[in-house]
Design a protein around this nucleic acid. Sequence first.
DNA 1: GCAATTTTTGACCAATTGGACAAACGTTAG
DNA 2: CTAACGTTTGTCCAATTGGTCAAAAATTGC
Lengths: 217, 217
Amino acid sequence: MEAEKPRRRTRIQTEKRELILEAALDMFSQHGFRGATIDQIAEAAGMSKPNLLYYFRSKEDIHINLMQRLLTTWLAPLRELDDVGDPISELRSYIRRKLEMARDFPRESRLFANEILQGAPRIMPMIEGELKTLVDEKAQVILGWMRAGRIVHTDAHHLIFSIWATTQHYADFDVQVRAVLGPDRGGEQRFDDAAQFLEQIFIDSLKPKTEPLNPAR
Amino acid sequence: MEAEKPRRRTRIQTEKRELILEAALDMFSQHGFRGATIDQIAEAAGMSKPNLLYYFRSKEDIHINLMQRLLTTWLAPLRELDDVGDPISELRSYIRRKLEMARDFPRESRLFANEILQGAPRIMPMIEGELKTLVDEKAQVILGWMRAGRIVHTDAHHLIFSIWATTQHYADFDVQVRAVLGPDRGGEQRFDDAAQFLEQIFIDSLKPKTEPLNPAR
DNA sequence: GCAATTTTTGACCAATTGGACAAACGTTAG
DNA sequence: CTAACGTTTGTCCAATTGGTCAAAAATTGC
């Protein structure tokens, strides 16, 4: 019995796999897993279907690979949230960075949203593992800031959720946002407006208050 | 040439169409438009495929009908935002109602999210029409409150977006939210936690401030 | 009770889809 | 040059899918 040879990757393999993943990102994010076809992906990657299947065993194989690499870059901003930094500016730049990702990598955001929407059938382990671990860890950091009185007391997990929700909204619901804002305010500046708004809402309400905000009535 | 007879709807037609839409809501919200099959929907509705196609001309026909009725109920909370009420409590109950909808009608939320995610190919007219009109109208109401100094000045459209994003997040990303919160805090009370958190964030930052919040450093 | 109408079904179809496979073609180290 | 290996393609297949149709069954109006 021959054991599986891991077989180092060829230069061509590296390149072609890259091409395929890029094309698949396009298709999956636009049509969802079931909506995208191998044919489409292959054509977008400039090769025939059997050729594509030479590099990836199946459609699902492509998707797994895509999600794996995606999650890492997707969680990068949160990973950078630094315990020792100034809480307010740490959170401010986290929000800003997430919003930049929504602007610069909307396909990645939509791919992720698509997967979660359908119940995360293919990446549940990653959610329960890597993602949950990181969130719990950073929630602890935020909790530390609260206990030290450096930001207002609130629910750290839901704070993270709301930052995710508000920033990713501009990628996932892009067509709706643009349709509602109309041609005037729907241009690229919508991200600047969003940045300003989100900063105001989150930062204002998180800054510690030395006196009760609403003394009477 | 016979003109189209509108032909009043039978009792059976009314009932069966209802059954089908209910089943379709299940399937579409879980698998997306392309992911759901007519067979599945028919089976879930307890009838054969040709029978289903006797009540709806096509898969798309079902979807259209579903989206139409959905949008109305979906926008109801915003429609209730009342010009003459107290701004803070109006916004507070808007947020609460939206969160209740995410809790009680998650399928509707996901169906909508699915459609927008893929570029709203089938409901763009409704977005640009009914939805945009309502949002613009209510943004004006909010703007009025700001000008009257009854809430803080900010971007009304982005405020609405952020309320949508944060509340619908608990329906659309439900599996992720539950996975991250874990079995302890992931129960039904997550909605209460969310309500409390969102109220704190939004209301706190919207309440008018009579003095600068951060006088020095 | 019966004819007209509505509802339901089984059988069928063409198109699409994910994937298998063997043969052909390229590349490269010796 | 050539053997070994990597790459590409044309062809094929079985399953799934959206949808049709005529005939059977049920319902309804009188």
